[in-house]
Computed example of a mutant assay.
Amino acid sequence: MPMSERTVLGLSAAGFHRVAYTQWGRDDAARTAVCVHGLTRNGRDFDRLALALADGWRVACPDVVGRGRSDWLPAPALYGYPQYCADMVALIARMGTETVDWVGTSMGGLIGMTLAAQANSPIRRMVINDVGPFIAQAGLQRIADYVGKDPVFEDIAAVEAYLRFILMGFGTISDECWRHMAVHGARPLPDGRFRLAYDPAIGEAFKNGPIADVDLWSLWDRVRCPVLVLRGAKSDLLSAATAEEMTRRGPGAAGLVRVVEIAGAGHAPSLMSDDQIAVVRKFLAED
């Protein structure tokens, strides 16, 4: 299936910036899907899922600003969900479609939930991967302990070893997938070494005060589209109780929410294994 690397312009208070995205599938596909990654990751995490969808969908996998191939913003305060949502709206406009299917891991799930809660949202169906409208302080603290750090690595093998440690919640995935994440999650330095492919300034938000629980139930209660909630069985970010409550509130009250627990994964299931991909595809294929 066709794959290409593209960009769209986003606008912040500091001016325009490039948002890079990878597109899979044909421009004239009947449906469009947008897959958005977690806090420190990038759109290439979805290569296997996007390829599996590309026979029926045109799939856009953006690098949220400050990550991957996208531009970095000139001030840490510019990073945040209002900017991320605005950039995704620009991407949807670039795709020229009235409706999209959404797959969001962690941060990408929160962006999707925010957009889906708005009146006249273009999101038709949504997959939220291991995040929800209530996030306990403990899970956020674990993320805060590593996000924003700027380690230097001697080679890609060292990058891979680091990712295997901080992303152990992804569960059991192949060596090929770990290497893929390392290659696309690193940026080369002039001396041949590597740093991570994100702006360390994205971690500043975790330093602006004590970390507390996050309550977004008011957003969830306004979502009206069908939602598939994926939860890592060992997750410290999406509790079983929150996932269950999601089936009773918001779209859950209308019977539009189902929860699938992924054995062996924590935060967050990788969406790289055949069984996880099949679950996502089956849900998105429903009318």
Rank of each mutant, 00 (worst) to 15 (best):
L11S: 11
D213M: 09
A77G: 13
L11N: 15
G66Q: 08
L167A: 15
A268I: 00
A119F: 10
V259W: 04
M126Q: 13
M113K: 05
P62Y: 13
L196G: 05
A186H: 13
M95F: 04
G66R: 08
V19N: 12
V103M: 00
I143M: 14
T40S: 10
K234S: 15
D236Y: 10
G192C: 09
Y84L: 11
A86C: 07
T247G: 10
W24E: 02
D55F: 05
D27K: 10
M107G: 09
V89M: 05
G232Q: 06
P82Y: 05
M246I: 05
H17W: 04
A30V: 11
F206I: 04
V19G: 07
L189I: 05
S270R: 02
F170D: 12
P133L: 00
R6C: 09
S70A: 09
D55V: 00
S121E: 01
G169W: 08
D63C: 03
V183P: 04
V223F: 08
G25I: 01
R179N: 07
Y79C: 00
D63V: 02
D199I: 10
A29S: 15
V259Q: 07
A268V: 02
S218N: 15
A75P: 00
A240M: 06
A14T: 07
G66K: 07
A138M: 05
P76E: 11
M88R: 12
K234N: 15
Q276W: 06
E286W: 00
F194T: 02
V8Q: 04
A233V: 04
T99F: 08
V159I: 07
